[in-house]
């Protein structure tokens, strides 16, 4: 449980703070501009990308073959920008984890692993791993919204607290999901192409 808390803590030095999960692009287009539009964004993100990531964290926590999971998650992540963001966050998390929780299974992860696999290896209870992953799928974009849009931190926190993160984590433990997120993929690809100043890597 402590490991899950540390990984979900925004002060964990895994480099997650440089990723907005598509929020920066959505904000730049005016799609997310206030609390209701942020709530809708986070709700959709949780039920799509969040559920997918959480399912893979749970599978890794159950001890399933990591190379197989890595290839299966690649097949479920058609956007190269999304694959790069997931692997960059996995690499950052792995770097910090090697010092804190060295293990043979951590060493068995593929090079630049997808972040959900790292979470699953570190948090060996499937539900806790899924919960950590599902929470991170919305907490990063939520804090990015505070920074980018100047939204009220209390209001944004209340939105995150109201999301069905635990329900999604439970569902993620049932079977390996394959949910796609077409709009998020398109936002991620457009974010990479965007010229000018970007505060976030994704």
């Amino acid at each position: 449980m402590l490991t899950a808390l540390i990984l979900a803590d925004s002060r964990f030095p895994g480099g997650g703070h440089v990723h907005s999960g598509g929020l920066e692009e959505a904000a730049a287009r005016g799609l997310v501009h206030d609390e209701p539009s942020l709530r809708a964004f986070l709700h959709g993100r949780l039920l799509g990308a969040g559920l997918l990531a959480a399912g893979f964290a749970a599978a890794a926590a159950r001890g399933e073959d990591l190379a197989v999971l890595d290839a299966e998650l690649d097949a479920r992540t058609p956007s190269p920008a999304q694959r790069a963001a997931s692997r960059a966050q996995g690499r950052g998390m792995l770097r910090a984890a090697r010092r804190a929780w060295p293990s043979a299974r951590l060493d068995a992860l593929p090079r630049d692993p997808h972040q959900p696999l790292v979470i699953g290896v570190l948090v060996d209870d499937a539900f806790e791993a899924a919960l950590t992953c599902a929470y991170l799928a919305v907490s990063g974009p939520a804090s990015a919204a505070v920074r980018l849009l100047g939204l009220d931190p209390f209001g944004v926190n209340a939105i995150v607290a109201s999301l069905a993160v635990e329900d999604v984590a439970s569902r993620a433990c049932e079977e390996l999901p394959a949910l796609g997120s077409p709009a998020l993929d398109l936002l991620a690809e457009a974010h990479v192409r965007r010229e000018g100043v970007r505060l976030f890597g994704s």
């Binding site: 964004f41 709700h43 039920l47």
Partner: peptide
Amino acid sequence: DPSVDASSAGLAGR
């Protein structure tokens, strides 16, 4: 699911 179809992280209302 109307709330996901309308979300800019779902189908963006298209």
